[in-house]
């Protein structure tokens, strides 16, 4: 591919991922159908099989699902530069919107009406958070050991105020050890 063509492709990837970022509310797996339409059908950058394979890998990466999807897809389309361009494209819309909101909120000061509105919203957000835990728990194939990990994590964070990163790191280590162990037994 010539330099000029490569540049054009990166530009067009940036704007495609910008469009995807603009239309994804709440982030996450909701954007997969739109991504597939843009990447597989419209632009023919990847074949469907490669697309599906890439999507299944995203869970193994920490961070936001939408950013991870963009990084992996971008990499498979156009290497490291493609990954960077896609990631920046997908976060730009929300970055600009949140920046404007932050500007507005800090400059408006304590608007009484806004504060009243938020006072009604906050208990709802607490319910969102509990529901997130509930709906994640439905996707798990529960066993005794997994339930013990869940309980340990809950009590370490609420009762003992342990930093979440230690809990996540601990579960990561248990997972790695167990996959080593399984491999040896197979």
């Amino acid at each position: 591919m010539t330099k000029e063509k490569e540049k054009n492709k990166l530009f067009s990837m940036f704007f495609t991922f910008l469009k995807i970022g603009l239309f994804t509310f709440g982030g996450g797996y909701a954007m997969i159908p739109l991504m597939e339409k843009e990447i597989v059908d419209n632009n023919k950058w990847l074949e469907k099989e490669k697309f599906t394979q890439t999507v299944s890998l995203t869970q193994a990466i920490p961070g936001s699902v939408s950013v991870n999807l963009s990084i992996l897809l971008g990499y498979n389309i156009e290497g490291v530069l493609g990954a960077i361009v896609s990631a920046l494209g997908v976060i730009l819309p929300s970055f600009v919107i949140i920046l404007l909101i932050a500007l507005a909120l800090t400059n408006l000061g304590e608007l009484a009406l806004l504060e009243k509105a938020f006072s009604g919203i906050r208990p709802a957000v607490a319910a969102f958070i509990l529901y997130a835990a509930f709906s994640l728990s439905k996707s798990i194939n529960w066993s005794t050991i997994l339930f013990i990990i869940f309980l340990t994590s809950f009590f370490l964070t609420t009762v003992f105020n342990v930093n979440p990163i230690y809990i996540i790191a601990g579960a990561f280590i248990i997972g790695t050890l167990s996959s080593r162990f399984n491999k040896r037994n197979n």
Binding site: I129, F150, L151, T158, A171, F172, G175
Partner: peptide
Amino acid sequence: NTPQNILKFLAPAVIGLILGSGFTIGITNI
């Protein structure tokens, strides 16, 4: 299958963390 296996053990820990967070946030806000 290694990432899949690690994630299997991460998920319950993450649920515990989110539930704990919702719990403390709920207590301070309701």
